[in-house]
């Protein structure tokens, strides 16, 4: 009995250790964003908002936030739409070459980001599209739509397959069925796909670094600060980004859970 308890304790201890490793850097960044010392180490200096003021009085940082916001919202919109179409096609139809179709839609995350960055830059530069906001959007949609597809596909797996046929039998056109049955059923998945792809795009730095040119996003600014000397502004910007992303994620999670439970209860 005692041995079993010790084992149990050891397991808990190990899990705790893993979580400490995972969250230590995130929390540290928070703490040091308020620390007065120029060189971040212990013992801590006093509390200050200096790094926040320094970071957010910089016009470049504001511009980067603007670019990031435009990019991530557009990416989320397009990627969610594409992801939904792919997921629905996979759910509804069987056709020749379907596995190639799925591979094409799910493969992008397996290509290293540096290579995607180089490939996108090479192509976009050739057709005169590099260094624009649209070039970041296009590349990010490639990276993000597989995630959207996966989320929507999971939701579609829960749908009652007879529902659609029932709607058709009752005289609804294919479009109307899509609009009034499928899309409302998928709504929670669509919203969380939107939030997740927005968050992924908001954090992506490698491809953005290659293709963005002068339209830097927030992570590209962070990367450039990182290349210079130790600079606690990273912690300030990083904390703001973190709070933004986490808010999006939690929102997505809450909406998904609330909507999907309610919908199933009311018979959907």
């Amino acid at each position: 009995m005692i041995r079993a308890k010790i084992y149990h304790g050891l397991f808990y201890f190990y899990v705790a250790l893993v979580f400490v490793f995972v969250f230590l850097p995130i929390l540290t960044s928070f703490v040091f964003s308020f620390n007065s010392e120029r060189f971040p180490t212990i013992p801590l200096g006093h509390f200050t908002l200096h790094w926040y003021t320094l970071a957010f009085t910089d016009a470049d940082v504001w511009d980067a936030f603007k670019v990031s916001l435009i990019v991530s919202l557009s990416v989320a919109f397009i990627a969610t739409f594409l992801g939904f179409c792919t997921a629905y096609t996979d759910y509804r139809y069987n056709f020749f070459g379907k596995s190639a179709y799925l591979a094409l839609s799910l493969l992008p995350p397996t290509i290293p980001l540096v290579i995607m960055g180089l490939a996108m830059l090479a192509l976009l530069a050739r057709i005169g599209m590099s260094g624009k906001i649209i070039s970041i959007i296009v590349s990010h949609v490639v990276l993000c739509s597989p995630f959207a597809m996966a989320i929507v596909r999971m939701r579609l797996a829960q749908i009652d397959p007879n529902l659609e046929s029932a709607a058709w039998n009752l005289g609804a056109s294919q479009w109307r069925t899509m609009r009034e049955v499928i899309v409302p059923f998928c709504a929670p998945a669509l919203i969380s796909a939107f939030c997740l792809t927005a968050a992924v795009s908001f954090d992506e730095f490698a491809v953005a670094w290659f293709v963005s040119g002068l339209n830097k996003t927030v992570p590209v600014i962070i990367l450039e600060i990182l290349q210079g000397n130790t600079d606690p502004r990273i912690n300030a910007i990083g904390s703001v980004v973190f709070v933004t992303s986490i808010t999006l994620i939690i929102l997505a999670q809450i909406i998904y859970m609330r909507k999907s439970t309610r919908k199933t209860l009311t018979g959907f």
Binding site: P25, D203, F205, L226, I234, G238, I246, I249
Partner: peptide
């Protein structure tokens, strides 16, 4: 909580490790 880190900046976490 294991999914949360995917949505935090990898660069910022690396900078934190530099501090350590």
């Amino acid at each position: 909580f294991l999914i949360v880190p995917f949505f935090t900046s990898y660069l910022v976490r690396i900078f934190s490790w530099q501090i350590f």
